[in-house]
Simulated scan of single mutants.
Amino acid sequence: MKKVGILTLPLNDNYGGLLQAVALSGFLSQHGFEVVFLKNEYFKNKWKSLVWSAIARIPFQNVNGARYAHKKRVLHKAFIKNHIPRRTRTLRSIEDFKSIVKQEKLDAIIVGSDQVWRWDYILDGYERYFLSFVDGSKVRKISYAASFGKPQWQAAEKLDEVSKLLADFHAVSARESDGVAICQQLARKDSQLVVDPTLLVKPNFYDQFLIKAKHVSEQKTLLTYVLDEQGKKKDFINAIHESLGTDYAVKSLGLQSDRTAPEWVTAFHDADYVITDSFHGMAFSIMFNKPFVVIGNSHRGVSRFTSLLQQLDLVSRMVDESSLEKYSVKDLVSHKIDYNEINTKLQLLREKSANFLMNALEATR
């Protein structure tokens, strides 16, 4: 086994999606594999792609988010080039994917991680995320930490089709326990639960991204990374800040942030307390041993949080966005996390997940 392709959602404005791709690529490279990143894009015909590309470059507008997405691509371009150096041409159709598998002579393809199996995210060509373009008798088909994003499979009419596609996989794993249950529903009883790639690598993997502060502040930092801002969340954040005290300054990130990926990672690394409603915000808080509170985000999927928190006995760190007023802010702030215990549990999950992936890549059919 030498050459492995990675397929994930298009890398646009999502810091977590970008960093999990870099982490998985880095992990495989560390273990001696040649990694080829399949440059996945949303399926559009050639002329529609050209039109949207032109619109995206027009300043002072943001038609259907095109300008915003373009600015994010420009922002992350250097980081992707440096840390995912081996990428294919842009792939916009099943025919493109079939062609690249032959051209690259791949030994295996890994689909994952992140919400690559969330139905409402993949409607533009869901078959590719179940590797329909790959002959399983010639190329190993593996899912690593694939997420459905929801506790149930959302497209009942596709059950038989997707079950047949998954039957051709050499190994199947999911990021959430709900995902494992869905895989079992789709006839993969051997599906395993593994950690997100951002947690598969050890914390020192991220040392290469950290930016040294030019000025050291005496104030501590309350970092907020909140994707869906609304009044109740703002009130909750203000209450946490008030409880922490004036020694803490608030630093806010969000979907509209113009921070680079290294700046984003550094913000979590340097934070003294974190509030987030993001799965990867939670993951990096745990990775860097930060006191944190995660706000359960029902729209984006709560099981993404609870599955990992349950494995680490950290469920008490999650609050429900629909009833934030019922929680004792004082208790949340005063409760200390025993990271010696958490790190031991996380290392066991990391080793189990690494063993799954290495066995999937190295075993024969």
Results as ranks from 00 to 15, higher is better:
T88A: 01
I110A: 03
S93C: 06
W117P: 03
L91W: 03
Q103A: 14
I110D: 02
K105P: 05
I100P: 00
S99Q: 06
K105N: 14
Q115V: 11
W117L: 10
R92C: 02
R118D: 07
P85L: 15
R86W: 08
S93T: 08
I109Q: 00
S93K: 04
E95W: 11
K98A: 10
R86N: 15
P85M: 12
E95I: 05
S99N: 14
R118T: 10
K102I: 13
F97I: 08
S99F: 10
E95N: 07
K102G: 10
S99P: 02
R86K: 14
K105F: 13
I94M: 14
I110K: 04
S93R: 06
Q103H: 12
G112V: 10
R89P: 01
E95T: 13
I109D: 02
L106R: 03
E104G: 05
V111A: 07
T90G: 08
R89T: 11
G112D: 05
T90Q: 06
R118S: 09
F97C: 07
K105Q: 15
K105M: 15
I109K: 05
I94F: 08
T90P: 00
P85I: 13
Q115F: 10
Q115E: 13
S99D: 12
E104F: 09
V101T: 07
V101Q: 01
R86V: 11
S93I: 09
I109M: 03
D96R: 01
K102Y: 15
D96P: 00
T90Y: 01
Q115N: 10
W117S: 05
I110R: 10
R92Y: 01
T88E: 01
S99E: 11
F97W: 11
L91H: 05
K102R: 15
E104H: 09
E95F: 07
T88G: 05
Q115I: 09
P85F: 12
V116H: 05
E95V: 13
T90K: 03
D114G: 06
W117V: 02
L106K: 06
R92E: 01
A108I: 11
Q103N: 15
E95K: 09
R92I: 00
I100L: 00
V101W: 00
D96G: 01
R87C: 15
V111C: 09
I100C: 02
L91Q: 04
E104S: 10
R86F: 12
P85H: 12
S99W: 03
Q103L: 15
D107L: 08
I109W: 01
K98S: 13
W117Q: 05
D114L: 13
I109S: 04
W117G: 04
R87G: 13
D96T: 11
I100F: 06
P85G: 09
F97P: 00
I109P: 05
V116Q: 03
E104N: 13
Q115C: 11
P85E: 12
I110L: 12
R92L: 01
V116F: 08
T90V: 12
K105R: 14
D96E: 09
K102L: 13
S93E: 04
R118A: 07
T88M: 03
I100A: 00
T90E: 08
D96Y: 02
P85W: 12
S113N: 04
L106F: 14
F97E: 02
R118M: 14
K102H: 15
P85Y: 08
R92T: 03
R87K: 15
R92S: 03
V116D: 01
